[in-house]
């Protein structure tokens, strides 16, 4: 899932300072599961903003609603009236959600209520860790299902480096060495021969280095002929 955390309330107050009618727009998918921007969190933020604006002497009309997925326009259309009626929309979806609202409703002023952090998973209740860097060419099949791009500070393909001490990364005592984890996993699976293969330099053009990425599936496009 995409993991995010809410911006400090003061920062959000600054973003909406000029508006009177505010809509806090939650998202029912990733940010709901990581307790950052679902129905409950949108309600808490809207209530907090109402209280704060009242205490500041400039009461704002703050409401909230949540859609199933902010990153698909079809779901946004269902709350189009609420979005258009607001002076400003505080999206508590991820960065994609914010941009989806802006692209669907270009005339609407939309600001982010969250800082989108990473793609990861909950390792225990209340703790989320990064697991994928969306590098565009997955090598998990060679590394025992442990990603050195997301979990090694140096993103090494042929690790570990000299900073790995007793299974711990040199950047933090809290951080296990990804390549130690890979070694242990492959050893337990009797697949250590995989680690002996020297990996060539990674093709980073499939990652962010190649600019914004786009995937097109012609078999799925409904208006392919019309657009050509």
């Amino acid at each position: 899932m995409i993991v995010a955390e809410q911006k400090p309330l003061d920062e959000i107050k600054g973003l909406i300072a000029e508006a009177e009618k505010v809509l806090v727009l939650g998202c029912g998918t990733c940010v709901t599961v990581c307790f950052a921007g679902g129905e409950k969190e949108a309600g808490i933020l809207a209530t907090s903003l109402r209280m704060a604006s009242k205490i500041d002497g400039q009461p704002k009309d703050v409401t909230h609603t949540t859609v199933q997925r902010q990153c698909e326009w079809e779901y946004l259309d269902a709350v189009a009236d609420q979005i258009r009626e607001a002076d400003i929309v505080v999206s508590v979806g991820c960065g994609i959600g914010v941009q989806a609202v802006v692209e669907r409703f270009p005339e609407v002023w939309v600001v982010p209520g969250l800082n989108t952090s990473f793609m990861g998973l909950p390792t225990e209740q209340g703790v989320w860790e990064e697991r994928c860097a969306a590098c565009g060419s997955c090598i998990l099949g060679l590394t025992g299902g442990i990603c050195p791009i997301a979990r090694c500070a140096k993103q090494l393909l042929n690790g570990p480096c000299g900073g790995s001490q007793n299974g711990v990364c040199e950047i933090s005592k809290e951080l296990p060495c990804a390549w130690q984890l890979i070694y242990d996993r492959l050893k337990s699976q009797n697949r250590l021969h995989l680690i002996t293969q020297i990996q060539p330099p990674k093709d980073w053009s499939k990652s962010r280095d190649g600019g914004p990425r786009r995937i097109t599936r012609e078999d799925l496009r409904l208006a392919a002929e019309a657009s050509e």
């Binding site: 400090p8 808490i44 907090s48 209280m51 704060a52 205490i55 500041d56």
Partner: peptide, 8 residues
């Protein structure tokens, strides 16, 4: 924490 941020 929440009410402190709000101003209470």
């Amino acid at each position: 924490e929440l009410i402190t941020a709000v101003g209470l």
